[in-house]
């Protein structure tokens, strides 16, 4: 599960606002947050930039025994 929703809420952004900033539909953001769609690398980078973080933090899955 990615951390897009967590970081979006930290930035106090709605799905709509994030979608507008990134240039995609709100539905796409919703699908990404629910792990129902794998975004392209470009889209991941755009989302990370808007949320003020990096790809690893947002999208790298951390195993339970590593954390």
């Amino acid at each position: 599960m990615n951390r897009v929703r967590e970081y979006r809420k930290k930035q106090k952004l709605s799905q709509f606002s994030l979608a507008e900033k990134v240039g995609v539909a709100r539905q796409t953001i919703n699908l990404i947050e629910n792990d129902k769609y794998n975004p392209s690398l470009n889209l991941c980078i755009s989302i990370a930039k808007v949320l003020g973080t990096d790809l690893n933090t947002l999208f790298w899955e951390v195993e339970d025994n590593e954390s």
Partner: peptide
Amino acid sequence: PGVLDEHA
């Protein structure tokens, strides 16, 4: 109607 993004 909206954005024709990569998912669409």
